[in-house]
Amino acid sequence: MAKIMIVEDEKVIRELISEELEKWQFETYGTTDFQKVFDDFQQEQPQLVLLDINLPVFDGYYWCQKIREISKVPIIFISSRNTNMDMIMAMNMGADDFVTKPFDLDVLVAKINALLRRSYNYVEASQETLSHNELVLNVDNSSVEIKGELVDLSKNEYRLLYILMKNHGKILSREKLLRALWDDERFVDDNTLTVNINRLRRKIEQAGVYGYIETKVGQGYIVP
Rank of each mutant, 00 (worst) to 15 (best):
Ile17Glu: 00
Gln47Lys: 07
Thr31Ser: 04
Phe41Thr: 01
Tyr210Phe: 15
Ala125Met: 11
Val217Ile: 15
Asn92Asp: 15
Ile4Pro: 00
Trp24Leu: 11
Glu185Lys: 10
Tyr62Val: 12
Lys203Trp: 06
Ile163His: 07
Asp96Pro: 02
Asp52Ala: 06
Gly148Val: 11
Asn198Ser: 10
Asn198Asp: 10
Ser173Pro: 10
Asn54Lys: 06
Ser131Pro: 07
Lys36Pro: 02
Ile146Gln: 01
Val136Thr: 13
Asn133Asp: 14
Gly208Asp: 09
Glu44Ala: 06
Tyr210Ser: 13
Val99Cys: 05
Val49Gln: 01
Val107His: 09
Ile17Pro: 00
Leu105Gly: 03
Asp97His: 02
Glu44Val: 15
Pro74Gln: 02
Ser18Cys: 07
Ile197Thr: 05
Leu16Pro: 01
Phe26Arg: 01
Thr100Arg: 07
Tyr61Ala: 04
Pro102Cys: 04
Ile213Val: 12
Leu50Asp: 00
Ile13Lys: 03
Ser79Thr: 06
Val217Ser: 05
Arg174Ala: 12
Phe41Glu: 01
Glu175Ile: 14
Glu8Arg: 03
Gly30Leu: 01
Leu160Cys: 07
Phe103Arg: 09
Asn92Pro: 02
Arg201Lys: 14
Arg174Asp: 14
Arg199Phe: 13
Arg68Val: 15
Ser173Arg: 07
Pro102Met: 09
Ile53Cys: 04
Lys166Val: 09
Ser154Asp: 12
Arg68Trp: 13
Leu55His: 02
Asp184Asn: 15
Asn198Ile: 12
Ile67Gln: 00
Phe103Trp: 14
Trp63Met: 07
Tyr61Asn: 06
Tyr120Asn: 06
Asn82Ile: 06
Gln219Glu: 15
Val188Leu: 14
Val188Cys: 12
Tyr29Thr: 11
